[in-house]
Design a protein around this nucleic acid. Sequence first.
DNA 1: AGACATAATTTGTCCTGGACAAAATGTATG
DNA 2: CATACATTTTGTCCAGGACAAATTATGTCT
Lengths: 302, 302
Amino acid sequence: MTVTGEGGLSIGTVERETGLSKDVLRVWERRYGFPRPWRDSSGDRLYPPEQVEQLRLVKRLVDEGLRPGRVVRLDPEALRRLLAEHVADSALDGHDRLLRLLHEGQPQAMANYLQHQLASQGLQRFVMETLVQANQAVGVAWAHGQISIFQEHLYTEQVQNVLRQAMGSLPQHTEAPRVVLTTLPGELHSLGLLMVQTVLTLHGAEVRSFGTQMPMTEIIAAVDRHQADVVALSFSAAYPAPQAVEGLSALRDLLPASVALWAGGAGLRALRSPPERVRIIDPLEQMVESLKAWRSEHKAVG
Amino acid sequence: MTVTGEGGLSIGTVERETGLSKDVLRVWERRYGFPRPWRDSSGDRLYPPEQVEQLRLVKRLVDEGLRPGRVVRLDPEALRRLLAEHVADSALDGHDRLLRLLHEGQPQAMANYLQHQLASQGLQRFVMETLVQANQAVGVAWAHGQISIFQEHLYTEQVQNVLRQAMGSLPQHTEAPRVVLTTLPGELHSLGLLMVQTVLTLHGAEVRSFGTQMPMTEIIAAVDRHQADVVALSFSAAYPAPQAVEGLSALRDLLPASVALWAGGAGLRALRSPPERVRIIDPLEQMVESLKAWRSEHKAVG
DNA sequence: AGACATAATTTGTCCTGGACAAAATGTATG
DNA sequence: CATACATTTTGTCCAGGACAAATTATGTCT
C-alpha cells in the first residue's frame, strides 16, 4: 500500500501534501522531466522532500496564472524570483501590523488586534472592508513567499474565532429568505463562508450554514428539508474555474426552479460565461443588493 | 476536461463526492461489476446519481469494517438492512433531544440546547462527556442512515460555534507546554481538534491551533517558529489507519527529538502497533494525564 | 482444544503509455 | 481593432497488469 519510507514520499502522499493529483504528477514528469522521483524496490515513485517543496512553489505560480510548461523546469531560486515579481504588490499596506503579528507567530496578539478592529468599526465594516483587504494582503504575502502555509492557517483560525464569536451575540431574526450556505466538495476554504454568513445574518436573513464540502445530492436534500429559498455557494481562488461552472450548472439542473442559486468568491472572478440562472456575486457588497432584490421580487407573494 | 453532463457524473466528480479514489472506482467495477457507469461519446465513465448514492452506502459499510467484496454487489435495500444491523446500537440514548432537533433541522434550537448543556455542566464536563457522547450518537445515527451528511454538517457547525465562543471567554494562561495542534493532510474533521484545544486551554497549556490539513513540512516549520514543546494530531474514524501510522512515523523522524508527539482520536483506536516515541491518547481524559506527565518530566529543567 | 506459524485470498495503490477535449495562445481575415 | 479560425498546451481519463499489506483460512505442535 501507500508507503512513505526512507526519506521519500509516495505519490499518494505527495498528492495530499501538494494538492497536485497523481495524474498531474506523472504527466509533468513525462512531459517536462520534473519532478524526477527515485524508485523503491518495486518500482514505485519516491519523492524526495526537496522536490515536494519545489512542487509547492510551482503550484503557487500555476495558481497565479502562469503556465506549467514555462515554470516546471525552473530551479527553486528562479521560482522564488518569479514569485516575487509576478504578483500584484497592491493592498498589503495598512496591514503591516497584522502581517507582522502573523510573522512573529503571536496568535493571541492577532486575535486581540482583530477584536479591536471589530469593536471600533462594527461588524459590517469589519467584514466587508477590513477582512476583505486583510485576506487579500495575506494571500499576496503568501504568494510572495513572505509567509508560509502554517501562518496562513493560523490567520484563518483567529479570524474564525473572532467571527463565530461575534455572530453568537447577534439578534436572532427569522426573516425571509432562508439561505442554505455551503461549498462544493473540493472547496475547503471556510473563511468566505463565514464572512457571507455574517453579512446575511446582519441583514436579517435566515442562514443555515453547513460548512465546507457538501456533496451535491446532500445540498438538494438540505434544501428540501429546510425549505430553503436560496442556495449560496462560495468559491476560493484555489478552486478550478471549470469545475465551478460544471458544479453550478449541475446543481442548477437538480434544484427546483423556485430556489435561487447564488455563487460568489474569488474563484469565479475569471469566469467567461457564467451558467444560466445563477447569480454571480462578486464584491461582497453585492450580497446585500441581491438580498434586497430577492425580497422585492417575493414581496407580493409572501 | 472533467465533465459532468447530461445527468451523469464524471469519475473525478464521483471521487470528490464519495471519497472513493478513481483507482478504487475502476477496480471495483473491474472486479465486482459495480458500479456500472455509462460511457460518454469519448469513452469516459458517466455515473448515474443513483449509483453514486449507492456507492455512499457501500462506503459507509466498508468504513464500518465490512469487506468490499461482500457488500459491493448488494442492492440498496440490502445495504440499508445491513447498515441497520451491523452497527453498535449503544449510546444514542440520552441524546434523543439532540438527534430530534438535528432531524427537524433547527440549528438555532440546537445551538440553544448545546449552550444550555454547557452552562449547566461547565466547559470541562461538556467537552469530555456530553460532546464525546453526542459525537458518537451522531456517528451511530449516521451509520444507521437515520441522519444524512448534511445534518451531520449542521451539527458540526453548531458545536463549532459553541466551542469557539466558549473558548473566547477563557483566561489567557501562557504556561508550558506550548502545543502545536493540527491534523495531517486528508484529515478534515475539525471537531476533535477543537475539543482538544478546549481541554488543553482549560488546563493552562499554550495551544497554537492551525486547523486541519497541515502538510508535514509546514508542521515542522511551525514547531520551529513557535518553539513548540509538543505536537498534537487528531485522527477521525474516517482516516485510514495505515496512513496515520505512516504519517506519524514520518513526522517523528522529521521532528527534533526534544519535541513530544501526541496523537489521538477514533482513527487510532484499531491500531495494532503504534510507532515508536509517539504517545497515543485515546480517551480524551488521557490528555490531562499526558499534560501532567509532561510537566513533571520537565519540572527540573524549566 | 488452543496458540501460533504458514499459506491463500482480498484489496488498495501504483505502474505505463496512449488518447482526447477544453483552455489558452497565436494567426489570419473582415 | 475586433472577430473567426488554427495550433499548442494541459488536465483528466482509459486499459489492464502488477504487487504488497492486510485479512482470513489452514495446518501443526504443545
